[in-house]
Design a protein around this nucleic acid. Structure first.
Length: 155
DNA sequence: GCCAACGTTGGC
DNA sequence: GCCAACGTTGGC
């Protein structure tokens, strides 16, 4: 099982909104960056997704999700009304894909960017490729993060 | 609100 | 195919 970090601006879509969904799932759509897309395509069923709130007062990992459906073409790319419309995308040749993620857990104590900065995770893509909105974690990074999570948020 | 980082676009 | 201009992300 792999672990990923998925960023969202809480003003646009927050973990509370995900929890409020009837099925507590969401399609991770609207991603328009090729590296991020490739990461979305690489997600397997059962992979863990850390929900990261970006562009807000306290950037932080705020909870966990689970991949419950592999990526398939993102409908918003075909919709001229959508802000994510892509005129160069066709149904035969879609460019953008979204997996479905299910809410698993919201942390009582979010893992802030500041806290992560003081750990070995400072060497992860969260800091190295800080603009990328969908990031993979290595096995050791995932293990480190999991330890921090469990220390601050015991099950 | 500023600005650095960096991906994308488009002219040549 | 290069690269300058431009736009966006996101921390601070």
């Amino acid at each position: 099982m792999k672990s990923w970090i998925l960023k969202s601006e809480p003003d646009a879509f927050s973990i509370d909104q995900l929890m409020a969904e009837r099925t507590q799932t969401t399609l991770w759509d609207g991603v328009r960056n090729y590296m991020a897309r490739n990461n979305l395509l690489a997600m397997e069923l059962g992979d863990k997704g850390y929900f990261y709130h970006s562009s807000c007062k306290v950037p932080a990992i705020v909870g966990e999700m689970r991949v419950v459906e592999k990526a398939f073409p993102d409908e918003t790319q075909f919709n001229p009304e959508s802000r994510y419309f892509d005129s160069k995308s066709t149904r035969k040749n879609p460019r953008w894909f979204s997996p479905r993620l299910q809410f698993e857990r919201k942390y009582a104590t979010p893992i802030t960017r500041g806290m992560l900065h003081k750990t070995v995770l400072v060497n992860s893509q969260l800091f190295k490729s800080f603009r990328l909105s969908v990031l993979p974690l290595t096995q050791s990074e995932a293990a480190t993060l999991e330890k921090i999570v469990l220390r601050l948020n015991p099950l």
